[in-house]
Design a protein around this nucleic acid. Structure first.
Lengths: 212, 212, 212, 212
DNA sequence: TATGAATGAGCGTTCATTCAT
DNA sequence: CATGAATGAACGCTCATTCAT
């Protein structure tokens, strides 16, 4: 019956779980510190003090300061990318504007739930190192591609102006980033009406400044 | 006749010029290094190697690493702020859209002429130190205020939609920043049609995505 | 029984002790270097080489070069001040000269036990920084005040000549400092008869040069 | 007739004189700076600014910072040593105490005339480097030898107690140094009655504290 | 002779990472 | 697995000295 094995497995599994809990606690501590002070101004000392672990323990769970920062970013990237969905145009699909509204609300809610990492994402424009720059570029690149593709679809449907899809996608992305930066870094997003903010963003994005 | 005086003045003036040339060369080297690697990843060593001067020489011309960075930023801030003008609405003023076009073109040309510093401005989002953060915030804050004020004026004239002026100004600023980031950091701005880019930006800003 | 706790406590206590030993070793190394070369001519490099530790290790134990120097000085100040006592004149007190003898012997023994720091104290007249100058001045000031007060008491008792107490206290202090400097810096105090030296100092201080 | 030679000599001599004036001016500037801030806290920058000369010019007149400091010290040493005279005991000589009085007054006046260097001498106990320490030791050693010799003479004449001449000479020297330090470094010697100070010093030196 | 721009060895300090326990 | 003392490369900066003009 492999009782020993079972027992051992149980022990191993429990240890595994404990390990994961610990790891998550360190990640959480690092997230708080990075969000508060930025990458460069956060030292390993800050993180281990916040996580209440020893110096060496940190390196049992993470390869380096860079690695934990990467992991935190990847976590947010993955979560966010799950919220941004291609706009469906098939029969029976919800109206595109409704889909946009829903996506924007989902993204804003996700950012609110992860507001520490959101701050990091918006603050650490670049400058950590070349690899980080590439990662950031890829993340925004993917979103931009989605937006550009939506623009092209909209153009095909005669809903969207005949504009340069790539450049305009950047403009859309920039509006969103700046507005979110304003809300999350300069203001306190818990005290703002994020739904209203989403509507203003979409209105600007779709209609621009001019009265129609 | 004062030949001696003239001669001495000549020597002093030549030395003065040499000094300014050297200073400019160090500034240029630092500009290249900062633009390439960002503030934190650029060391005094990098700068003096790029400028081909000795350690001490650097400190003959600049007080500190921070000081040279500041000077480079201020240089760009001053130049840029001279290009952004309040839109005139009085009788005899050019049509607002023409004024916007002109301002956008001027700014894009200025950025092209200072593209290394433009990269720095767009890359170093924050995190150098508190003073720098304030400076950056003030710079963008001034522009945002200008845009918000233009939006309010436009609203009074029934040209602009009834939107939240502050949030929308952020969106406008964000569109511009992101588009310029795309053009200057991810692409090579010398190979792009900046005039076309400006038109796309203005079109998006004024009309949004929708076909009118 | 708390065997685990005991074991853990034992480990912690041992680490604590090791830390203190190491700290003391660094202090000793610094003391030797400072005594040999003075504050300015002793570099962190000298200290860590003498203590056979790495650069960073030094900063685990001391905040700065200044801090370790201060600690060494304060150590001596405290020890010395405990040896210098106000001369008792109440009934049942030992004769003043006996008290002086005892104090001088105690101080000389203390200096002998701390001869490296004694050298520092006598050598670093001033010039490290303003704070240090103040500290030194205060130390000697306290002693001078004690001596001046003893002189005034002696004058009241008609034991001491009618002299300027402040100036004469300086003379007394100067005699002692110079004699100790001679013994500790120019000679090897371990090869001198410090008791004899103390008697000579007191004889000079009390009786001067002249045959009575 | 060697007219040319004479003219040339005249020119050379005039240049020589100008050179010496310049040199003296630099020395004076350095003296002021060293007296004010001490050796370590005085930089070449301070000296050339005070002397109003160029960096390179300094090195035309002096080999190094150390060299000019040495020269200033030597200057004072020489001047002072000329004022301290062996006490004459032959027939027809003035009474020893009168000679002491005169020497002390001469030395105090000389120190007053050279009070900047006096401050340096008293402040820079040591720590500049080994060579400087030796120089200082030799200077005080010579004075000590003079005093010790005077003590021995006095002992032969039964004027002076049977004390250890070397140690007691140190005590005498120490009294003087400390009193002068008090007057010149801690007080303003121009506002003190140096004659009175000299009398107190001699009284203490000869009679000690006790009432005779 | 006089200049002052240029030099570079050296300083004190920091901090991400390693490793013996 | 957990610890935290130890490490040392790298940093920004200073300043006595040199040297081309």
């Amino acid at each position: 019956m492999a009782r020993y094995g079972e027992k051992a497995d149980g022990r191993v599994a429990r240890a595994q779980r404990a390990r994961e809990l610990r790891r998550a606690a360190v990640l959480a501590a690092a997230r708080r510190e990075f969000a508060e002070h930025g990458y460069h101004s956060t030292s390993i000392d800050d993180i281990i003090a916040a996580a209440d672990i020893a110096r060496g323990t940190f390196y049992l769970y993470f390869e380096s300061k860079r690695a934990i920062f990467d992991e935190l970013l990847d976590e947010l990237f993955t979560t966010l990318q799950g919220q941004v969905r291609r706009i469906e145009t098939g029969p029976g699909a919800a109206p595109p504007v409704e889909q946009m509204d829903a996506t924007v609300d989902r993204v804003l809610d996700t950012l609110l739930e992860n507001r520490e990492m959101a701050k990091i994402l918006l603050r650490e424009a670049v400058g950590i190192d070349a690899e980080f720059d590439v990662k950031l570029k890829q993340f925004y690149g993917r979103i931009e591609a989605l937006v550009a593709s939506a623009i092209r679809t909209g153009q095909d449907m005669r809903l969207v102006r005949g504009c340069d899809a790539e450049m305009t996608a950047r403009c859309v992305l920039g509006s969103a980033k700046e507005l979110v930066h304003w809300a999350f870094v300069e203001r306190d997003p818990t005290e703002l009406d994020l739904h209203h903010l989403g509507r203003e963003l979409i209105a600007f994005t779709l209609k621009g400044l001019f009265t129609s």
